[in-house]
Design a protein around this nucleic acid. Structure first.
Lengths: 207, 207, 207, 207
DNA sequence: CATGAATGAGAGTTCATTCAT
DNA sequence: TATGAATGAACTCTCATTCAT
């Protein structure tokens, strides 16, 4: 990761940029060492600022965490909206979903959503997040259902299929490494193909 | 969860039982609130004993964590050995693997292995765990490869396929709830079928 | 040091012997690691008994410490009484004192008196010990004074001389090692000679 | 002792002054109650600050201890270097050494070096300290040897003589009290004279 | 605005001591 | 009698947060 401390190099820099720099750094550290093992000091040190300076941009540590979640869920939201407005078969929507969602799982804010410990959230925030995750699941399930109905997807239990697909993609955030053997693009492409194949209606013999 | 505090009802109870009660309780709390947010006091309180009493059974907090991991990995180890000695096609091995492994992912100690934060481990223990996870992946990949060779599995990239399947199953430990709508048995059965179907060689109709 | 755990080998052993074994072991550990860093567990472990067993022989940890001091001071007391009943010049008494006292400083209980931290004592015990040390000093000073009066010791400030001699001998307990290059006997002999020489009236050549 | 808490009267006082105040207070308490019985709280209380504030100036308790040792050994080092560059007979060097060294033994940091429990040091620091003490001993011994060779010191076993002298002076740190009957200056002067006299070559009769 | 200094609360751990058997 | 188990109090150290400048 490139350090974001340059955002603090000058006093005249845009505060929004600084806020963003804090978030980028925090997200990186949260993923590296977990939220609770990341101290405000760790964040400040990486940015070459002092600890209390962080409190100019965020009320407290949890607000930073919540903001990371918010940025991540926004990314996902965009995907879902994009795909919903797609034309195409259910199977095509599933493929588009897997492709985009896998990509999000390789971006820090996206990874935060699925990787950080829910236990560190307040009960309100936790409820929101749970709703969010349910929403994603329902959407994926509806794509599959659509596919079954339009014949692009082989008949199956949509709920279980959605769990399988979502799990496979979510898990990416646990093993993906920016410098690893597989690039984000490759992962997304391959996962989209592989998971879609498993779902697709089997070719019937043409007479 | 059933409380395990009864193990400590009498001073003369079997120490092994008490040790196990500590582990069960700890695993439960670690999954509920994460390792670092679980204090020794939390564990002790659930068991209706005092904090220092825990130190009769474990040298320190990390030893409890390591033991949870050990019990979990032992469960997985058994599966892998069982299946390796199986006869059957590669596809059948994959199915057996998914079935058993999914079951483990619904047991607290098994969930710990894939759900707890690696960052809380000492570097030695971390290296061990990483090796362990790699081993599981290699094994699954070899089953798939076997299947491709014996014709039970449709040709594909075994590495990506293994990532998909392992991810889908690992993710179970993130959403499974003992009191939830799906029982462990159902999950295991359905996942085994669904994930295997996606892999299976498609029956071509020969005219 | 030979372990004293054999005193506990049989249940039928003399309780007084066991008590003594505890004291020997404790004194050894107190000198090795200091009183506060020696836990009751450490003592018990060396003796191959359990911690609470110690409480059959001593009310608490401090009682063990006090007993070590008591045994040590008794050793010194005997010396002082022996020498007081000596005949001989003051210088001879000083020599005898240094010789015997140096020997005591190589015995564990004796070392305890001068080496262990007074700060670990209750104020009562501390007062006693301080009195004791003053008594030793007064006695040595009186030997020197006697020597000055009977002409065996060169005129000097008896108080300062006593501080020098006592300091030199007391310090032995800080560096003496049973397995070291100098034996207790050698140390005692050499210190007695050296310190006495420094004190002795210089032979004037009478014309 | 004068309290050093005034150094913490204002937040903006010189940090170096505060650090020094901590050390002075700590050294005082270590000598009074021993290192292990002195809690960080004790130190903080004397300075009218809270426990965690200490961690602004020192990484941990041991660092405070090590710094006390370092300041003490620095004092001694200076003496040794001064004397080495002296001219004069061996006996004069011994006298200068005793005088200066006795003075150091009445200063808190100097007392720490010879009075605090070595067992509280890490093995590295312990090795350093042991080397240090050996160095002092060797130096004193070489002064005596020099004296024997230049005729200012009566022939004797330099090793034993050094043990006697060093012991006498080291022991000062055990009984010296700032408010006591003997001032540091007096002690140093008298010890220097007394210990030197005992060593000096005896005056031969002048014809 | 920004920051060094300070704090209160709480973590893990140890230990002398006592209870219950 | 003797012991494994348990405890309460203390310790070092950490950290999110807030003053005071």
């Amino acid at each position: 990761m490139l350090s974001h401390y340059k955002a603090f190099a000058s006093r005249r820099r845009d505060p929004a940029t600084k806020r963003e720099a804090v978030l980028q750094t925090a997200a990186h550290l949260f993923l590296e060492k977990s939220y609770s093992r990341t101290s405000m000091n760790d964040v400040a040190e990486r940015l070459n600022i002092t600890k209390p300076a962080l409190y100019h941009y965020f009320r407290n540590k949890e607000e930073i965490l919540l903001e990371c979640y918010r940025l991540g869920t926004t990314l996902i939201e965009e995907i879902l909206n994009d795909i919903a407005s797609h034309c195409g078969t259910g199977l095509e929507k599933v493929e588009a979903f897997v492709y985009s969602y896998a990509n999000v799982m390789t971006v820090n804010f996206g990874r935060c959503v699925m990787r950080l410990d829910e236990g560190d959230l307040s009960s309100d925030a936790l409820a929101d997040l749970r709703n969010y995750k349910r929403k994603i699941d329902r959407r994926l399930r509806s794509f599959i259902q659509e596919g079954i109905e339009d014949g692009s997807v082989a008949p199956c239990d949509a709920k279980i299929a959605a769990f399988c697909i979502a799990g496979a993609v979510n898990w990416i955030c646990q093993w993906y490494e920016p410098e690893g053997a597989l690039s984000a693009e490759e992962i997304a492409t391959q996962f989209a193909r592989t998971l879609t194949q498993g779902l697709a209606r089997r070719p019937r013999k043409e007479s």
